[in-house]
Write a protein that binds this DNA or RNA. Structure first.
Length: 215
DNA sequence: GACCAGGCACATC
DNA sequence: GATGTGCATGGT
């Protein structure tokens, strides 16, 4: 399997090139985006983030002080705005109550414990926690999302009812543990899912995974 | 107008 | 542990 996952990565990278993830200026902006993008098109997330930026609110202390009501209005374009405002507030409460609002301080915690702490926050599930760990905090954790699952299923690399953890282990046990690799690999799977895997069912004729690696 | 998007919590069986 | 449902906007 390890060779297979390496091969897939090489095919994707040679086909699409680097994806430059995560599109954000600061770790805090990554975290906000990770919560806002739950089951939501990224274009809608950008509108919400730009609303926050425009009002100079894209900073943890400012959002911590902002009312939930006002926050939900600003993030309206993402959909689920009430629940997402609550989830952002839940994360901010965690950040300020446990780490005085200082993201550098949470970097001192070992990755396994930090992941458990993130998962204990209401509104942060496995994908959001892992996105925060990998893309905001640069920890070598593989992110599994709906595209990843769909693509692996399509190519018969996992069984239909595989859990999040099983899929994550598949990558983490068969690839070298490397932030840059995990970053690019997940981004490439999302790119593939958006552009190819959904639009060409069931044969996926133009799927780059069905072609030879370019040399 | 239907369908989908870089999930999650909660209820129920 | 598996399955179903609510949350909601904007693009195709």
């Amino acid at each position: 399997m390890s060779g297979k996952l390496d091969l897939i990565y090489r095919k994707l990278y040679s086909h699409f090139g680097p994806q430059h993830w995560w599109p954000a200026d600061t770790p805090f902006e990554v975290i906000v985006g990770a919560i806002l993008t739950q089951n939501t098109n990224w274009l809608n997330v950008e509108k919400a983030i730009n609303n926050l930026r425009k009002h100079k609110l894209l900073e943890q202390r400012k959002l911590y002080r902002l009312s939930k009501k006002r926050l939900s209005t600003l993030i309206k374009p993402t959909g689920y705005f009430n629940i997402k405002a609550q989830r952002l507030k839940a994360f901010l409460n965690f950040l300020f109550k446990s780490y005085q609002g200082n993201i550098q301080k949470i970097l001192l915690i070992n990755t396994r414990d930090l992941r458990l702490q993130l998962l204990s926050i209401n509104g942060i599930g496995p994908e959001t926690a892992d996105s925060i760990l990998l893309y905001a905090l640069k920890k070598p954790v593989f992110v599994v999302d709906a595209y990843t699952r769909r693509i692996l299923l399509r190519h018969r690399l996992v069984k239909k009812n595989a859990s999040y953890g099983e899929i994550q282990n598949l990558f983490m046990q068969n690839l070298k543990s490397n932030v840059k690799l995990f970053n690019e690999y997940h981004a490439l799977l999302v790119r593939l899912g958006k552009e190819v895997c959904l639009k060409n069912k069931p044969k996926c004729d133009i799927c780059p995974l069905n072609s030879k690696v370019k040399t």
